[in-house]
Design a protein around this nucleic acid. Structure first.
Lengths: 111, 111
DNA sequence: CATTGATACAACCATACGGTTGTATCAATG
DNA sequence: CATTGATACAACCGTATGGTTGTATCAATG
């Protein structure tokens, strides 16, 4: 088992256009590593590495089908990343409310 | 103006725990670079660099206040990232629906 | 069981990244 | 206008990352 996918891994994995595209293509769960590699102007091994990064981040999994290994997107990984950003946004809303009330009551009561 | 914040920059910026924490702290918009730097076990310059990465990604901005520069989170950057992940999820839902109907109608009509 | 198709892995290279220290700039102030 | 506080920037270092090529493994098949 890879070292527990965390926010670092997830965001880092999504920070590359090729990998984001792989995630999209793997939504269909129909293409193997070789088919995926065919879509990009780089070596087979390079695409393998990208897929490995996505695996460590928990964004895709591989499933053996005959001699091929089909790559499929793990929606829970995506949800996790979205959830993190949701938290940020809700925190932000809370702050804004608090700041607004501060402004409307005392203008600048900073310590 | 920095080279147009894109998905690569945004996700890469969020792929570091220190930077995510800076984003959270900068939600208040009360701390300058030095105050922020005080929170982390690294040099002032290192924190400056992290803030620069967040700036390039469009996640924070700096605003001069006297001799200090206050760092504040740009919620639109966060929304952009969340929107990207939303797109992924909706695409996924679409695929699932299509696959489901395929399975229920013809089992395997791949091209 | 030798061959072939598909994937995995290792070694290597260039460049980017996260950290450091040191110096320079810029704005307020005595 | 010299000084001080706060930020910026440059040079450097070790390691991670994205790419390459080459070799090894593993599963199906004649």
């Amino acid at each position: 088992m890879t070292p527990t996918p965390n926010a670092d891994h997830i965001f880092a994995a999504l920070a590359d256009a090729t990998r984001r595209d792989i995630v999209l293509r793997a939504l269909s769960g129909r293409e193997g590593v070789a088919e995926l590699a065919g879509h990009y102007p780089m070596s087979f091994a390079a695409v393998q590495k990208h897929i490995a990064v996505l695996e460590r981040a928990g964004l895709v999994t591989k499933e053996r089908t005959g001699r091929r290994k089909v790559v499929l997107t793990n929606i829970e990984g995506l949800s996790l990343a979205r959830g993190l950003l949701d938290q940020y946004e809700s925190l932000w809303r809370g702050r804004v409310e608090r700041m607004t009330s501060l402004i409307t009551t005392s203008e600048e009561t900073d310590a």
